[in-house]
Design a binder for these strands. Structure first.
Lengths: 215, 215
DNA sequence: TAGACTACAGAACAGTTGTTCGATTGTAAA
DNA sequence: TTTACAATCGAACAACTGTTCTGTAGTCTA
């Protein structure tokens, strides 16, 4: 944990906002003098000073030698997110659990790009590759990639990866709490729902999206 | 049709390739002097000369006032592609056919972002929203988005949108040519394949990928 | 052959841009 | 009060970068 974000001064927030706006407007990063002018700073050195701070704190990255080489730390993550692919999901094995540093370690796992629209704001998401045809009742095929959100609570009707303790099996189903038991409803309506006791289920994550590549 | 691409000289092709490589390697465009050095040109004015040509011919765009303000005409499409969402796909209706200007008109339709990796190099792709549960045999759900490639030929085993003339029905199935007839195999192995005569099928496009958003 | 055009070289120039140095001010801790 | 530090200013510098001007050489056409 080296690059922990610390609090920033109002001036630094100003500058950060200005960089964001400038990027939106122009499509390329501002020069130091743009920042100075835009934030009402009369000296470039002040901007440099704060840019250093912002870089230390991990809010921006800078490319030396290159003009306007400023990148927002979360720049490329605006349109698409990088989601760690941390393992496979198959019928007979519990899903891999993301560790605390799954998202912080840049290199640890494969990162796959996912359009932000699919994520709908979900955070702490990770990806699993589907192995086997055991989830066709969930309309999920061998080779699909499921985007999961590590969630503790699952609303009624949301699709979740559920570990059935007795059966020692993982399934992806819509979860409905009904009195003392839980109804697990497949996405494919031609498949029957199953009713299990609350003690038998262990929600391992929420399904956010599914990607399938046919080519 | 104002910016028609014309032929370019080998030098200009050199420069174009160099710009592409440089972008791949560095993530930002080259300076004029980078181009000169990289292409074995001993004068910046020569590079300028050819850059003007390349811009006239529509291969690149240049941003005046900004250093390294060179963009490949197809620059932003590197990591993710913008795919036009041109309609819905349902059992009883043929799929909308993309017109020639589907990809050229910027505003015409909704554009959805799709990671390039999913496309696997496919071109002339468009997106359709799935309506109804008629395609659960293809492991496709109501609300899914299917990415299609307008292809004339479909290899054996590839998944395609097939219009069954007699049944007046669209299905997504793997296509296998077998002698005089065609076998259409659902992705879900619990569903049976159907055998149809070649005259009854009309391939309307190749399925490239499927996106599903559960949230 | 003359003219037009493409391609190239070299050099000089001017604007842009990032960096650095010294000095000043205000605030908070010791 | 002294010290330390964050924040600021102003100015100068050097490097980077795009532009432009003056030529030269080859090719093609009229």
């Amino acid at each position: 944990m080296s690059t922990r974000k610390t609090e920033i001064s109002s001036r630094q927030l100003d500058i950060l906002k200005f960089i964001q706006c400038y990027l939106d407007e122009h499509g390329y990063p501002p020069a130091i003098r743009d920042i100075s002018a835009g934030c009402g700073i009369s000296s470039t050195s002040v901007a440099v000073f704060h840019l250093k701070k912002l870089e230390e704190k991990g809010y921006i990255r800078r490319r030396p030698d290159i003009s306007r080489g400023i990148e927002l730390a979360s720049a490329s993550d605006r349109e698409e997110a990088s989601v760690p692919l941390i393992g496979i999901i198959a019928a007979g094995t519990p899903v891999p659990v993301p560790s605390a540093d799954t998202w912080s370690e840049a290199d640890s796992a494969d990162l796959i790009k996912v359009p932000r629209v699919l994520l709908a704001g979900a955070e702490n998401v990770y990806a699993l590759k589907v192995r086997g045809d055991s989830m066709q009742d969930a309309l999920i095929s061998d080779g699909d990639i499921v985007i999961m959100e590590s969630a503790v609570v699952v609303e009624n009707g949301e699709t979740a990866a559920v570990w059935l303790k007795n059966e020692k099996e993982i399934t992806l189903k819509k979860v409905f709490r009904e009195g003392g038991h839980i109804r697990l409803q497949p996405a494919n309506k031609h498949y029957p729902a199953i009713i299990v006791s609350a003690g038998n289920v262990e929600v391992q994550g929420k399904v956010v999206a599914v990607l399938r590549n046919l080519l």
